[in-house]
């Protein structure tokens, strides 16, 4: 694969870095990544696994069914190139599967039986964090140092995109929680004003009425406040008529 043109590589990197689109989908993105990397090799297939927040690996995407099986074998039997790359945070390259039975007693014979001759794997890493691994399964393909560097760089760029997506998702969830919490406080104040006016009492007294009503009816305060601001007539005790 050392014959990849600079132009083709540049396009590849742009594709892989492009995670800031409106309808970004992690699985689709990883699917694209595995297909693109497989495309670099001519006779190789690519599979990818990611770790969840507890560090457990799970299959995410593969360029074809045979690569998906290779990833699943590793996860099921607990050995193989991706697990090594994940554990050591270093690439595993040019392993001849026919001679790797001592290294991976479970994975090597199954991969060889499936028709693969060589295996490589690259950690998906950002600084010290390793979030997964990408495996490349091929016929007698040899990767030289430059090839390995290109594949590792693609993996690194993909990780930046993935972590960015994770950070944005977390940000959106937390923003929603913050706004929701502030909003429920505001609604309670508005409800106090509504009940105060409707019942001719002070806002403090109105709050006591609302709280007592919520307790008596086993409802949450914010839920009662919501009903007051949206549908007061349904609450005759609190001033609705």
């Amino acid at each position: 694969m050392t014959t990849v043109s600079a132009e083709r590589l540049a396009t590849l990197f742009v594709d892989v870095a492009d995670t800031l689109v409106d309808d970004f989908d992690v699985v689709e993105f990883l699917q694209m990544l595995t297909r693109r990397v497989a495309g670099l090799f001519g006779t190789g297939e690519v599979g990818l696994m990611l770790a969840d927040h507890r560090g457990r690996l799970a299959f995410m995407a593969a360029s074809d069914e045979s690569a998906r099986l290779m990833e699943l074998f590793q996860l099921q039997y607990g050995d193989g190139p991706c697990l090594d790359a994940f554990r050591t945070a270093r690439p595993v390259t040019n392993v001849n599967l026919a001679a790797a039975t001592a290294k991976w007693p479970e994975f090597a014979p199954r991969a060889a039986q499936a028709g693969f001759q060589s295996a490589h794997a690259f950690p998906l890493r950002l600084r010290k964090e390793v979030i997964g691994a990408m495996g490349v399964f091929g016929s007698a393909t040899e990767l030289d140092e430059a090839d390995a560097h290109i594949v590792q760089s693609l993996a690194d760029v993909a990780v930046i995109g993935l972590l960015q997506e994770r950070a944005i998702h977390r940000g959106e969830v937390l923003t929603g929680q913050l706004q929701g919490a502030l909003n429920s406080r505001i609604v309670i104040e508005q409800a106090k004003g509504i009940v105060a006016q409707a019942r001719g009492v002070s806002p403090d007294a109105a709050f006591s009425l609302i709280r007592d009503y919520a307790r008596r009816n086993n409802r949450r305060l914010s839920e009662v406040a919501d009903t007051i601001v949206t549908n007061l007539p349904s609450l005759p005790h609190l001033g609705g008529h």
Binding site: L182, R185, I186, E189, Q190, A191, K192, G193, I194, V195, A196, Q197, A198, P203, V229, L232, G239
Partner: peptide
């Protein structure tokens, strides 16, 4: 919210 509680209360009162 706390600093402006009275604004939200007034909003509720005026609405009624």
């Amino acid at each position: 919210v706390g600093q402006r509680a009275e604004l939200f209360q007034a909003q509720g009162m005026v609405a009624v």
